[in-house]
Design a protein around this nucleic acid. Sequence first.
DNA 1: GCTATGCTGTGATTAATGTAACGATTGCCG
DNA 2: CGGCAATCGTTACATTAATCACAGCATAGC
Lengths: 216, 216
Amino acid sequence: MTSEKTIARLSLYRRLLGQLADAGTASVYSHQLAKSARVTPAQVRRDVMAIGYHGSPSRGYMVAELIKSIDDFLDAPQGQRAALIGVGNLGRALVAYFSGRRPQLSLVAVFDRDPKLVGKNFHGCPCSPVEQFAPTRNSLDIAIAIIAVPASEAQAVADICVKAGIHGILNFAPVPLNVPATVYVDNIDLTVELEKVAFFARSMNRRKTRPAPRRR
Amino acid sequence: MTSEKTIARLSLYRRLLGQLADAGTASVYSHQLAKSARVTPAQVRRDVMAIGYHGSPSRGYMVAELIKSIDDFLDAPQGQRAALIGVGNLGRALVAYFSGRRPQLSLVAVFDRDPKLVGKNFHGCPCSPVEQFAPTRNSLDIAIAIIAVPASEAQAVADICVKAGIHGILNFAPVPLNVPATVYVDNIDLTVELEKVAFFARSMNRRKTRPAPRRR
DNA sequence: GCTATGCTGTGATTAATGTAACGATTGCCG
DNA sequence: CGGCAATCGTTACATTAATCACAGCATAGC
Ligand SMILES: NC(=O)c1ccc[n+]([C@@H]2O[C@H](COP(=O)([O-])OP(=O)(O)OC[C@H]3O[C@@H](n4cnc5c(N)ncnc54)[C@H](O)[C@@H]3O)[C@@H](O)[C@H]2O)c1
Ligand SMILES: NC(=O)c1ccc[n+]([C@@H]2O[C@H](COP(=O)([O-])OP(=O)(O)OC[C@H]3O[C@@H](n4cnc5c(N)ncnc54)[C@H](O)[C@@H]3O)[C@@H](O)[C@H]2O)c1
């Protein structure tokens, strides 16, 4: 019932709130949070409403409480584990970035088919051959796959993931994947993103107006 | 007037059409293109209409002509050049990926503030100190900046870009940037994307229905 | 030739998403 | 103690995006 866009914003709010908490801020108004997230105050209030948290007109939202509410809403109670498939240029950067972040959503294993990579350890994640995906998935209870293999291999790898019981895929290969409706796929197509920026940069140069207020 | 979503799909169509052209296919129907792009046929026709190309009811769209039309629409006549700032884990992967792709949209320079990286060459792109950004931008006519520096540095780097006359930014730092309305920013927030996948993977597990048809 | 077929182009319609408006509430300050 | 100022919660509205549905047309087959 809650839309994808709302989930994305909640994830962003949570990170911004974490920074506020670190800075010792106890409470925050919708317009303050809106400003740092680059959205309207009404949008913030709507999103907060969606997770059932309530602020007070005088103090706004209690930072710690709101974080807790977002946690309860977004996180799985027993945590979730992810695996990365394809430890190439991009894959290595992703492991460096995602490993050791939130304990509730951790990267625990990586896979590749290159024998030179198998057996190595990447930021605490052992690299196994891709044939080991299904058994490893079961033993470590992996819920999410991150695909960073060449485009030509992506569909085959996705099939392996689906067969092993994965229900969420973050796909960096520039190929729309074919999966059953029970699997959620998020495609990150960086070529498309770059071309988008190129196009709108051009229209910015010409007319000095932006096509639409930005956020993601 | 043409929306961001439409531009993103056109970029995807172009790549898919290129594959068709390589395979020797001369013409394609909206429903075929729609299937590989994971959108509806009506959507394809609408998008094609937006760039002023016309197909024929009998043959559909001529692949080579449609590619040409998308090129004319998306590409700058004299090409566009991009620079990357921050040659760390992610930056290096991006250079490897983006360098030497389309000549119409090429990565030509990289910047960092680490003296150990300055002077090195990354896939044909010389690495300069970030202080050299403005002069290099002018001499190479760089239109687009890709930001891959730590979050704490991102705003400062964005300011440098804006001051140097950049109108398009692809931002990988997990920070909403503060820029004037004359600059188009596309934020790629991978933490948000991963958390989104985690959330919907969970809801897939529970109820076996997807929240919305997927695409990006 | 003539009809049947299957596609494109596009106005009409529906769905999704975001914004605005405003009553309700809370504490503050005189 | 009672208005004032500010903010939340929520409903109504506006905007944007996607889909439907069908007229119009080109071709193939007979
Ligand atoms: N490098 C980037 O910045 C970047 C940017 C955007 C998209 N991508 C996409 O991400 C993917 C990976 O890019 P990359 O630059 O890391 O490529 P890469 O060639 O450096 O790495 C690919 C890795 O996948 C492994 N691999 C290949 N086939 C496999 C299989 N069937 N099973 C398991 N592992 C397999 C290879 O051994 C290699 O280690 C590609 O689809 C690419 O288009 C990369
Ligand atoms: N690695 C990933 O896969 C990944 C994923 C998502 C987001 N990100 C984001 O991308 C950014 C870069 O990530 P990374 O993993 O490559 O980090 P990194 O630390 O490996 O690289 C950062 C690079 O930026 C350079 N740098 C720092 N300050 C600079 C400045 N002021 N001017 C110019 N160069 C400067 C550093 O010298 C370094 O080379 C971060 O904001 C990170 O949050 C990275």
